[in-house]
Design a protein around this nucleic acid. Structure first.
Length: 898
DNA sequence: ACGCTATCGTAC
DNA sequence: GACGTACGATAGCGTT
């Protein structure tokens, strides 16, 4: 034996790994604890990477009692039984070790320590190197000239230690560890030791007399107290030594030469890691690229999948018949652009069952493809059929591409795998197909960049590769469907999905497709005005400060304000002093510069975020702006808007209003804007059932005024504007779980006054507090909250012992049903409104949704009738215990309707 | 040149 | 530390 042998103390590493994450355990996608699996292999892989061992074994304890139990029945008796979720991970670790072809050792009647000791003693006598990976101090007795140990260090890694380090750490040499531990004992193994002798005393005794025998031979030299302890516990001392003495003669172990590492199926191990949710380990094992390259080889017509390029007209016809018969299929469009409002189809892939898919190229380098028109007709026919279900990943994208291609009549039912995955767990952060395949199917897809070289397009990809990629997309989408469908049912989300989210997907696609008109010219003019104004303010600031600097840089601003102008910092950020609005407002009281900075910032924000950006978003084909609504963008169920974000266009001040005014209706049309009055507070009243809060909605009184009257103890008619402002802040604050601290800051009042207001609020609305308490305690039990329509959000922090995290989780638990249910209501209204408009034969179109507001574009002669329809539909979208009120306006720009 | 984080600010 | 949900701009830093 010449190679260095690495011996891993299996259970020591498993325990350590499990408890390392005990405050924040890791879970695999099946929801089982995977801390031990992750920690175990993270350590193992890091050792592999650092030392590249050729020879290694993982050693486990036997499942049967050992000679130590026979000798001393109390052995390890005090040890707490391992938690069930730790125990369950052992077979998984064994499975992965097996897949990695790592030698595993265990033997009945002996412990891992004994096996390790047997090899170590051979290493010592034969002079070959050996390393023990463990956290167990018993094993330190084995360290010597050719045997070292790796123990956890402070940084979380493992450090190699030799005899000197052991002596340093314990104060005694490795060969004295045994006698040392016989005196000290071992709590975890219930080894008694000598009562009254601790680490300090033991080190002292061992140093003076060398060994246990040495001590007992020289008892007369000790203090009377120590003499007595040692006399009395003599038996325990020697029994202890016997227990912790390791066997070095375990028989029938494989010779060390056989404990070698070899090649193994990396792909298989990566899959196991992915199954356990350890994607970082999977990544570490083989770079994603390598694995994907391997994947490419066999996925074209591998064991698991058959992918066919469709090039013949009669095959297309046969496929159509099969589709109409199957009634459910995955269909995915390849295009030449990520922007569906610019993209042209390059090919279509279709899957009818898992493992089989077709790619129908329309444009493909070096291939004679089918006539585009024939394919278009075929797709149009199957998607027109209301009995069919179209399964897709991010359906809105394909829907819009196909609509632009001329497929306008899509009546097939929709099943979007991306939305389904989001509905099942909105706390995940990615819902892309590649990520879903890995997370849910443990399948690594071919990535776009692997098939399409930079600078090229999909149509440049040769047929074979194009088919492998495109058909896989359809195949995986189908498999995702098979995975997701039953889970939606199990989790009681199938109805929300079918009746709310999927009908909404179609409505959103239509809204995005319609777009909204923007007067780019007027914004450009405004931009020039702003540029001038900014220049002037900048100059003023520079003059006052005596030098030029970048006003947009918070870092430079800190220097100017807090160093050069010696202003007092108000609050800190992670990296320095804050310069946000509230700080600058305070500083403005003693210095003229902050006021100017505020002015500059406001205008700069307006210009860079809206005025300069929006005209660039005008689509060259349609001349309109087409935002994208993210149906999977939020954890509460709200929509999000991007490219551009039309949900945060300024509204409050005059400068911002100018931007809204640049949004204009088509010729002959007007905008209609309808918004729910205080929908979140109405939902809050409904969910809490608080009579007083509900009364405001029933009577249609101003909720903020009512709250002010109640907490200040005055008549509603006597409420001052200031009192109403305070009440408004509290009304919203309660929904968000605002603290007295925040409220006092917001209102510039003392913290005790703020606390007093909140108390008064709860006293007047008693069921609000009950609702909050009940919601928190239910969330603690179940781990999640649900909205009115059943949308679910996991709240992992709800069991945290960290106070900040715990209260953060409580705020989420309370806010999500409120915000999420409001979102549900608006979504429902959108679907019903879309249907009503269609049934009424109106040409009016929904264009935008801004959380509690809908914006429509109506031909002038429809405005009156549609306005009525909108109000009615929105107010009756769902039935709550309180009435919902909607206010409506029409105008010739967005600025005019708010 | 690109990607990431921090900070800031807009909306509801 | 301290109010929920988003998107996006700029600065500044690190990596390619």
């Amino acid at each position: 034996m010449s190679k260095k042998l690495y011996l891993v103390d299996g259970y020591a590493l498993i325990y350590r790994s499990y408890f390392a994450f005990i405050r924040k355990p890791l879970f695999n996608p099946q929801g089982r604890n995977s801390s031990a699996v992750f920690g175990f292999f993270r350590t193992l892989l890091s050792i592999m990477q650092q030392y590249s061992p050729e020879s290694l074994a993982v050693v486990f304890d036997s499942m049967t009692p050992t000679f130590r139990h026979v000798k001393y029945p109390a052995y390890k008796a005090t040890r707490e039984k391992a938690p069930e979720d730790l125990h369950a991970q052992v077979p998984v670790i064994e499975e992965i070790l097996k897949a990695m072809k790592f030698p595993q050792l265990r033997q009945d009647g002996v412990e891992a320590d004994d096996i390790i000791a047997t090899y170590a003693s051979r290493a010592a006598s034969e002079g070959w190197p050996c390393v023990i990976i463990t956290g167990d101090k018993d094993l330190m007795q084995l360290v010597g000239k050719s045997v070292s140990a790796m123990i956890p260090d402070k940084s979380g890694g493992y450090a190699e230690v030799g005899p000197e380090e052991v002596s340093e750490k314990f104060g005694v040499a490795p060969e004295q560890i045994l006698d040392y531990l016989s005196l000290v004992g071992d709590q975890s193994d219930n080894v008694p030791g000598v009562k009254g002798i601790g680490p300090k005393g033991a080190v002292d005794l061992i140093r003076r007399f060398g060994s246990l025998e040495g001590i007992y031979e020289n008892l007369d030299q000790l203090s009377p107290g120590q003499q007595e302890k040692l006399q009395q516990e003599r038996e325990n001392a020697f029994l202890s030594r016997e227990l912790i003495t390791l066997k070095t003669d375990v028989q029938e172990l494989p010779p060390p030469e056989e404990l070698v590492l070899g090649d193994y199926d990396k792909e298989q191990v990566i899959r196991l890691f992915l199954r356990e949710g350890a994607s970082s380990l999977a990544e570490q094992l083989g770079t994603a690229k390598e694995v994907r390259a391997e994947k490419k080889e066999d996925s074209y017509s591998g064991e698991n999948a058959e992918y066919i390029s469709l090039l013949a007209a009669d095959e297309l016809d046969r496929l159509k018949k099969a589709l109409l018969e199957a009634k459910l299929f995955a269909l995915d469009v390849e295009t030449d652009s990520l922007d569906p409002m610019k993209a042209r189809p390059v090919g279509v892939s279709i899957a009818l069952e898992a493992g089989q898919a077709w790619y129908i190229p329309l444009i493909c380098e070096g291939t004679e493809t089918l006539e585009e028109e024939g394919v278009r007709r075929m797709i149009a026919e199957i998607l027109k059929n209301p009995d069919c279900t179209w399964v897709g990943q991010n359906l809105k994208y394909d829907y819009k591409v196909l609509k632009r291609w001329g497929i306008e009549d899509i009546q097939a039912k929709l099943f979007d795998t991306m939305v389904a995955a989001w509905l099942l767990d909105s706390t995940a952060n990615t819902f892309g197909m590649d990520a879903l395949a890995e997370r849910l199917l443990q399948y690594r897809t071919i990535h776009f960049d692997d098939v399409v070289p930079k600078g090229k397009e999909f149509k440049d990809v040769p047929l074979k590769e194009a088919t492998a990629y495109a058909a896989e997309d359809a195949d995986i989408t189908f498999r995702l469907y098979e995975y997701l469908k039953p889970r939606l049912e199990e989790e009681d989300l199938a109805r929300t999905f079918r009746d709310l989210e999927m009908p909404l997907t179609r409505v959103l696609a239509e809204m995005e497709y319609a777009g909204i008109g923007l007067d780019g010219k007027s914004l450009e003019r405004y931009g020039k005005e702003l540029a001038k104004a900014l220049d002037g303010i900048q100059k003023e600031i520079w003059d006052l400060c005596g030098r030029e600097f970048n006003i947009n840089s918070t870092k430079q601003l800190q220097e100017i304000l807090f160093e050069e102008r010696k202003l007092n910092p108000v609050k800190k950020t992670k990296t320095g002093y804050s310069t946000d609005t509230s700080v600058l407002e305070q500083l403005a009281e003693e210095d003229p510069v902050p006021e100017l900075i505020l002015k500059h910032r406001g205008l700069a924000k307006l210009k860079s975020t809206y005025v300069d950006t929006l005209p660039k978003e005008i689509n060259p084909h349609t001349g309109r702006i087409h935002t994208s609504f993210q149906q999977t963008g939020t954890a509460t169920g709200r929509l999000a808007s991007k490219n551009p974000n039309l949900q945060n266009i300024p509204v409050r001040d005059e400068a911002g209003r100018a931007i809204r005014s640049a949004f204009i209706p088509r010729k002959g049309c007007r905008f209609i804007s309808a918004d729910y009055a205080q929908i979140e507070l109405a939902v809050f009243a409904h969910l809490s059932g608080d009579e007083t809060l509900s009364r405001a909605f029933e009577k249609g009184t101003d909720i903020h005024r009512q709250t002010a009257a109640l907490i200040f103890g005055v008549d509603e008619a006597e409420v001052s504007p200031d009192q109403r402002r305070v009440a408004k802040t509290i009304n919203f604050g309660v929904i968000y779980g605002m603290s007295p601290f925040r409220l006092s800051n917001e209102l510039r009042i003392s913290r005790s006054d703020a606390a007093h207001f909140i108390e008064a609020y709860f006293a007047q609305y008693p069921k609000v507090r009950e609702f909050i308490d009940a919601t928190v305690s239910e969330t603690e039990k179940s781990g999640y909250v649900r909205t009115l329509m059943g949308h679910r959000r996991f709240v992992p922090g709800i069991t945290s012992r960290n106070r900040t995290e715990k209260s953060g989780a409580e705020r989420i638990a309370v806010n999500t049903p409120v915000q999420g249910s409001a979102a549900d209501i608006v979504k429902t209204a959108m679907i019903k409104l879309d249907m009503a408009l269609m049934e009424g034969g109106y040409r009016t179109k929904l264009l935008l949704q801004v959380h509690d507001e809908l914006i429509l574009e109506a031909p002038e002669d429809e405005v009156v009738r549609v306005s009525e329809l909108v109000v009615h539909t929105m107010q009756t979208a769902v039935e709550l215990s309180v009435p919902l009120k909607v206010s409506i306006e029409d105008g010739d720009s967005w600025g005019a309707v708010h």
